[in-house]
Design a protein around this nucleic acid. Structure first.
Length: 1111
RNA sequence: GGGCUUAUAGCUCAGCUGGUUAGAGCGCUACACUGAUAAUGUAGAGGUCCGAGGUUCGAGUCCCCGUAAGCCCA
């Protein structure tokens, strides 16, 4: 059996083969089964939605997931991973509506809810095949045969179970949110509906800048400062909300001013407060020089004087009087609070807050506990001061029954003066209006009725997440976030500013809220299982509430419309109807740890074993989505984290850093990419190029580079091994020399390899895949290929199959096999092939797949740091010598007699001596001449040790450094001899030790030198006759080798060389180096003849030579 | 508007707790090597480390204020 040899490698085709192999041998299954009984490592798959096609960023996200599942498998864990599908939600509904050419309006009219939902169910899996194909092709191992599907009855039953738990704990309650609402249509609008083109229109509304009168008390004393009355100016384009004002918001960092002026309508002298930046808008600059005394009532120009300036922060907590006191409110209403939404782009920099009619307003009111303006309706329910038709309630006595927008009136009924205008007049009369004007702005309109919408409080069900805020924060602190900043920053801040989770959605395709409420709304029932639902239906039928169950004669389906038809009976015997909302789809996905196992109805043990997750990974855009809902449900119901480690990966952008989108046409198709470059290079590129949490500027050239640089080099190295191993019949059978007894370079690469194992292991362990990939890549290209193989090539193809050769094979074999294992989580296909190519011949591991192996464990005995350091020296010295050759224009093939190397200490010399043969062969020189200190020809340089001196002397460092730089050779010698020196500086004595300075050799007089850091190298460039001849011999070897290749000879084929007699130098060179030439070229003989016919004329520098080769 | 992240060579990225010539790969140019060869080595060109302040003997690194880009929230 031979190691497989390749002529070029098609990575994509290779991946196909490996894929077929995995399938046939069921390797994925085996990777789990073989870990039976071992500790489990739990991974949760965040469910994708299959109603869209997968993109290249999914390859990224899934590569990250796959890497750690594979790694943990290698580490001996059993890693079960269930696939899943997210199936509910608005995107599905929208797609169905698009396909059917209908709108939400038509549901229940042109199409029944049942038909609609059936269509949703079909549509949501539309691209499942593509997703499965991508999963398979990219090598993402996840159980696709038993996925969880969020629309499954069992899955939804688990959701109901969880919702009931929230309900039992009194954490599920009904409140309201401020939503776009169309009074004309009598319905709320989704943000999606609001984003339809044409919704926002420019309209002219009456805007009012109102004067809110500050209460003069201890808190506000500093601002009054002599004023009788002091007003905060706040601007609104919806004056009808002023009657519902409950607070004023300012920007903490904004500068505000107090201005002495006159009210333009009542001419009353007034003090007003507004943002400094807005002064020019409210006061005419032409009036700035007019004195307040010169003002006469009715003057067009109103004088003003800025009398005070302060930061917004100082205004927080001030009390003011209610502007339109129709409905009284308790404190802390009518207080100044901070709002992060306040700007000075328009208005006064002070914003009127109405908890019932604005989303920002609602939020800031809740944060500051400010109540909103509500009244009671006939049934005793709290309602806002505008009813659902858009009319003021009776409590607003002056305007009761008026529509708040003139557009809501019928064509004949529209009053001349709109409510906004009437309010403006009222405020002007009361000296409470500072400016009234028509203002043109963009305002959303209802797409059904064309009339303006209101922001209005609508019923919503909430989960009381705020009750668990502290606990959720504390639990989050125990989670290992990658990157950490997402956990502390983005996610941490989100938790710190947590508001209750709004669960309600007014939709059709989703999990219905399992809450039934009695007619008088005093009784509630939350259903937590199918069994319970069935029992309640029975009870209801028995009580005569329903004639028959909607499920009679068919399977239970918890979707709409069936649940809507269920009328239950309350304890007191009332009818109970289901709350019409669906729940937020994020609850679906956040509940997957439980629902994927149909917990608690089935699989209790499985669930308990796999909870919480050890690891999850998704895009950072999931912070407020999946990451949060997982965390909230786990924290609130189970007092647990849902996941212990999480990678929040960044986005995949186009090569110029723009967002990829199908619309812009810059989206990269994952399938063509995988087909063209293969999955390994694609994955390796994505992981090695940048950390997954950084955004990736996706560049196909980057994949090409990875393919060439990493996979090409690795494949070359393997091919090299395979070529010679096959020739020599190496099969890893014979006992070789133990690793400890091998050559320097063998021991060095083995040491490096063992260091690599530890480093890569800890990189994976720390969830740093990029670090792991780069470590493996650097080892492969730099250490293994460019140094070890290059320097040891001859050992593989020259001479007998002896111990040294066997050692070389064993060493290279071990390196390649270990790389296969270390890299297998990232590049599962190529490494599989590499592993099986190696192990398939040697059979020294009884396994059929790299993915069934154990992660390599470093042998500390084989790590030799001194040796690694020595080799580092060898590399640096060689590199310097090469640069000298370059400078002197002497090619490497020309041997030189010696390298000169200054040695400042014996330790250094010993290290270099250990690797001297390598250096000599690398730079083609005969010897190293160590220039000892004593030789006296080395010129030294001294540098202060800034790090050490800086700590000790601080500011004096500058003068010390200046002094040191003046030192000559004698000073340096003296410091070395006396282990230091006392520096005399401005009367001070500074004891300088050897550690305080760095001494290095700089120059060797009379030689051409090269220096780098503390290394200096010189080259003896005298070329003797013997050296010259040797150079000629090497030139000939080179030419002959080329001719052999041109003739198509195999490596092991023997030849005869005939050379035509030339000048003495060349003839001599050939004679002297005959043996060498023959050995290098597999020649049986080298004959010099007087005349040679049919030979080839070779040009070697200035020499010419006729040569003929016979096979 | 708020929160978070990023900004270093033409491109993609390193640069640990602050330490004195800021690195690598790719690309470009030149030279070399040669039975791994569509590989490889050496060298060269290429940098206001996004900008302005500050702390410090010393700042790519720490602090502050900006600018630009991205994401989430509003």
């Amino acid at each position: 059996m031979k190691y497989k040899e390749y002529k070029g490698l098609d990575y994509a085709a290779m991946a196909e083969e490996v894929l077929a192999f995995w399938k046939e041998k069921k390797i994925f299954e085996a990777s789990i089964d073989s870990r039976q009984g071992k500790p489990s490592f739990t991974f949760y798959e965040g469910p994708p939605s299959a109603n869209g096609t997968p993109g290249i960023h999914h390859v990224m996200a899934r590569a990250v997931k796959d890497i750690f599942c594979r790694y943990k498998t290698l580490k001996g864990f059993q890693v079960k991973r269930k696939g899943g599908w997210d199936t509910h939600g608005l995107p599905v509904e929208l797609q169905v509506e698009k396909e059917l050419g209908i709108t939400k309006e038509d549901i229940g009219k042109k199409i029944t809810v049942e038909e609609y939902n059936t269509k949703c169910r079909e549509t949501v899996m539309k691209y499942k095949d593509q997703w499965d194909e991508l999963t398979e092709k990219m090598g993402y191992w996840v159980d696709l045969d038993h996925p969880y599907v969020t629309f499954d009855k069992e899955y939804m039953e688990s959701l109901w179970f969880l919702l009931k738990k929230f309900h039992e704990k009194d954490l599920l309650y009904k409140g309201y949110t401020i939503q776009p609402y169309s009074p004309a249509a009598g319905t709320g609008l989704s943000s999606h509906e609001l984003n339809q083109p044409g919704t926002y229109r420019d309209v002219k509304d009456t805007s009012i800048t109102a004067q809110f009168k500050l209460v003069n008390n201890e808190k506000s004393l500093r601002f009054f400062d002599g004023a009788d009355e002091l007003f905060l100016l706040a601007w609104t384009t919806t004056p009808w909300t002023l009657a519902a004002n409950n607070g004023l918001a300012i920007g903490e960092k904004i500068d505000y001013i107090k201005v002495k002026t006159f009210n333009p309508y009542t001419f009353v002298p007034s003090y007003v407060i507004l943002a400094k930046d807005r002064l020019h808008y409210y006061f005419n600059n032409k009036a700035k020089d007019i004195s307040l005394e010169d003002y006469n009532e009715g003057d067009k120009l109103i004088p003003f004087e800025v009398v005070d300036t302060f930061k917004g922060k100082e205004l927080i907590g001030l009390d003011y009087e209610q502007l339109l006191p129709y409905v009284p409110l308790p404190k802390p209403a009518f207080t100044v609070v901070a709002g992060d939404f306040v700007t000075t782009e328009d208005g006064t920099g002070i914003v009127h807050i109405s908890r019932t009619f604005g989303a920002d307003d609602y939020r800031v009111s809740v944060q500051n506990d400010m109540p909103g303006v509500f009244v009671e309706d006939e049934e005793g329910n709290e309602v806002p001061i505008v009813d659902k038709q858009g009319k003021y309630v009776k409590e607003i006595t002056d305007f009761a029954g008026m529509y708040v927008k003139n557009e809501y009136y019928g064509p004949e009924e529209t009053p001349d003066k709109s409510l906004d205008v009437l309010i403006a007049i009222k405020l002007k009369e009361e000296n409470r209006a500072f400016k009234v004007e028509k203002y043109e702005h963009s305002y959303p309109h209802c797409w059904r009725t064309d009339k303006p919408i209101l922001y209005y409080p609508l019923d919503s069900w909430f989960i009381k997440t705020t009750a668990f805020k502290d606990r959720l924060v504390a639990l989050n602190d125990t989670i290992n976030w990658k990157p950490a900043s997402t956990g502390t920053g983005r996610f941490g801040n989100w938790l710190a500013n947590l508001v209750d989770w709004n669960l309600s959605r007014s939709r059709f395709w989703g999990t219905p809220l399992p809450i039934w409420v009695s007619e008088d709304r005093t009784e509630q029932k939350c259903i937590g299982s199918i069994v319970e639902l069935k029992e309640e239906i029975e009870r209801s039928i028995a009580a005569g509430m329903m004639e028959k169950s909607p499920y009679e004669g068919k399977d239970i389906d918890l979707h709409r419309p069936y649940v809507d038809d269920i009328v239950l009976v309350s304890e007191s015997g009332q009818q109970m109807f289901r709350e019409p909302d669906l729940i937020d789809v994020w609850f679906d996905s956040g509940a997957m740890p439980y629902a994927q196992w149909h917990y608690p109805f089935e699989n209790k043990e499985v669930f308990e074993k796999s909870y919480p997750a050890d690891f999850i990974a998704e895009g950072v855009d999931q912070t407020r989505g999946w990451f949060f809902t997982l965390h909230a449900i786990a924290g609130m119901l189970f007092d647990q984290v849902a996941f212990k480690n999480v990678i929040a990966n960044g986005l995949v952008l186009s090569d110029v850093g723009a967002k990829m989108s199908k619309r812009l046409g810059n989206a990269v198709d994952p399938f063509t990419t995988l087909d063209k470059y293969g999955p390994d290079a694609t994955r390796w590129y994505m992981i090695s190029n940048a950390n997954p949490w950084d955004n990736l500027k996706f560049n196909l050239e980057g994949i090409v580079e990875v393919q060439r640089k990493f996979f090409g080099t690795l494949q070359n190295t393997y091919s090299f091994f395979a070529l010679y191993a096959n020739l020599d019949g190496f099969r890893y059978e014979e006992e070789g020399i133990s690793p400890e007894a091998r050559t320097e370079s063998d021991r060095w690469i083995i040491s490096k390899l063992n260091s690599l194992m530890t480093a890569v292991d800890s990189a994976y362990e720390d969830y740093e895949p990029t670090r792991a990939a780069r470590l493996i890549q650097d080892f492969t290209t730099d250490d293994l290929s460019n140094w070890y193989v290059r320097l040891n090539r001859k050992r593989f193809w020259r001479g007998e199959y002896n111990d040294d050769k066997k050692s070389a094979y064993r060493t290279l074999y071990a390196c390649l096999k270990t790389i296969a294992k270390l890299a297998s989580p990232i590049a599962p296909f190529y490494t599989e092939q590499l592993y099986n190519n190696l192990n398939g011949v040697s059979q020294n591991e009884n396994l059929v797949s790299v993915h069934l192996t154990d992660f390599p464990i470093a042998d500390a005995k084989l790590i030799d740091e001194d040796l690694e350091e020595q080799m580092d020296l060898a590399q640096r010295i060689s590199s310097l010598a090469h640069s000298l050759r370059k400078k002197e224009r002497i090619k490497v093939r020309q041997p030189l007699s010696k390298i000169l190397l200054p040695v400042l200490n014996q330790e250094f010399k010993v290290k270099v001596q250990a690797v001297a043969p390598l250096i000599l062969s690398e730079v083609n020189a005969k010897a190293i001449d160590y220039l000892e200190d004593a030789s006296g020809i080395i010129v030294k340089k001294i540098k202060p040790n800034f790090r050490k001196l800086g700590k000790e002397y601080g500011a004096k460092l500058k003068t010390i450094a200046a002094k040191i730089s003046t030192f000559g050779q004698e000073d340096i010698v003296s410091i070395e001899k006396n282990n230091g020196m006392d520096l005399h500086l401005e009367g001070e004595v500074i004891p300088l030790t050897l550690e305080d300075v760095e001494i290095l050799s700089e120059d060797i007089p009379g030689w051409s030198v090269a220096s780098e850091g503390n290394l200096t190298v010189a080259l003896d460039i005298t070329i003797t006759e013997a050296l010259k001849q040797e150079g000629i011999a090497r030139d000939l070897v080179n030419r002959v080798q080329n001719m052999r290749k041109d003739m198509g000879l195999e490596v092991q084929d023997k030849i005869k060389i005939n050379v035509e007699k030339s000048n003495d130098l060349i003839n001599g060179a050939l004679e002297v180096n005959k043996k060498y030439i023959c050995q290098e070229t597999q020649a049986l003989s080298l004959t010099i003849t007087d005349e040679l016919s049919g030979g080839k004329l070779l040009e070697m520098d200035e020499h010419k030579l006729v040569v003929k080769i016979e096979a």
